[in-house]
Simulated assay, not measured.
Amino acid sequence: MVFSSMFAGLLAHQGGWDEILLIGGPILVIVGLLVVAKRRVEAAAAAAGANDPTVAPPADD
């Protein structure tokens, strides 16, 4: 009986991990999408620069 009441208490509050997922999950998705977009832009710029000799290569940051 003690175990079931402890389990119910854990489910009622979740210990905070669910709030971490609700905030951290979307942040990680957005950061991942930004990384992918940055790589695609840099690859497109490098390809455009390889075809056009007047364009300077991107600076390494």
Rank of each mutant, 00 (worst) to 15 (best):
19 E>P: 00
40 R>A: 11
9 G>T: 03
59 A>M: 09
26 P>W: 01
11 L>M: 15
18 D>T: 14
2 V>Q: 11
44 A>F: 06
39 R>G: 04
41 V>N: 08
61 D>G: 06
20 I>C: 03
27 I>F: 10
60 D>V: 15
41 V>L: 08
37 A>Q: 09
25 G>I: 00
27 I>D: 00
56 A>F: 10
56 A>K: 14
23 I>E: 06
6 M>L: 15
55 V>I: 15
46 A>N: 15
44 A>Q: 13
20 I>Q: 03
13 H>G: 11
9 G>C: 05
40 R>S: 10
35 V>I: 15
15 G>M: 01
38 K>Q: 11
14 Q>M: 07
2 V>N: 11
57 P>Q: 09
58 P>H: 05
9 G>P: 00
3 F>L: 15
4 S>W: 02
13 H>R: 14
25 G>V: 01
29 V>F: 02
39 R>T: 07
31 V>S: 04
43 A>M: 12
38 K>T: 12
41 V>M: 11
54 T>C: 05
36 V>E: 06
54 T>K: 11
19 E>R: 13
20 I>K: 10
52 D>W: 01
60 D>N: 14
21 L>F: 02
20 I>D: 00
14 Q>K: 12
10 L>Q: 06
12 A>N: 07
29 V>S: 04
34 L>S: 10
41 V>Q: 12
42 E>M: 09
7 F>I: 06
23 I>K: 10
10 L>W: 10
54 T>V: 04
28 L>D: 00
28 L>G: 05
43 A>Y: 06
33 L>H: 07
58 P>L: 15
48 A>H: 00
28 L>M: 14
7 F>S: 06
25 G>R: 03
7 F>R: 13
16 G>H: 04
33 L>Y: 05
52 D>A: 08
40 R>N: 08
39 R>M: 12
56 A>D: 09
48 A>D: 04
11 L>D: 02
16 G>T: 05
58 P>F: 06
49 G>D: 01
40 R>P: 00
25 G>E: 02
61 D>V: 12
19 E>N: 11
1 M>I: 13
10 L>I: 09
52 D>L: 02
57 P>S: 14
33 L>M: 15
50 A>V: 06
15 G>Q: 00
28 L>V: 12
11 L>V: 09
17 W>N: 12
11 L>T: 07
31 V>C: 07
32 G>Q: 04
53 P>V: 07
14 Q>N: 10
7 F>L: 14
26 P>L: 01
49 G>T: 01
24 G>T: 01
58 P>C: 12
27 I>R: 07
18 D>Y: 07
14 Q>V: 11
35 V>K: 09
9 G>E: 04
44 A>V: 09
10 L>P: 00
59 A>K: 14
30 I>Q: 00
51 N>Q: 15
27 I>M: 13
57 P>Y: 02
42 E>Q: 06
24 G>F: 03
23 I>M: 08
5 S>W: 10
51 N>K: 15
3 F>K: 15
44 A>E: 09
19 E>L: 13
50 A>D: 10
42 E>K: 03
35 V>D: 05
31 V>N: 05
31 V>R: 10
29 V>L: 14
35 V>A: 11
45 A>Y: 10
7 F>D: 02
37 A>H: 08
49 G>N: 01
55 V>Y: 01
24 G>A: 13
45 A>Q: 13
31 V>W: 07
59 A>Q: 07
5 S>G: 02
44 A>L: 13
16 G>N: 12
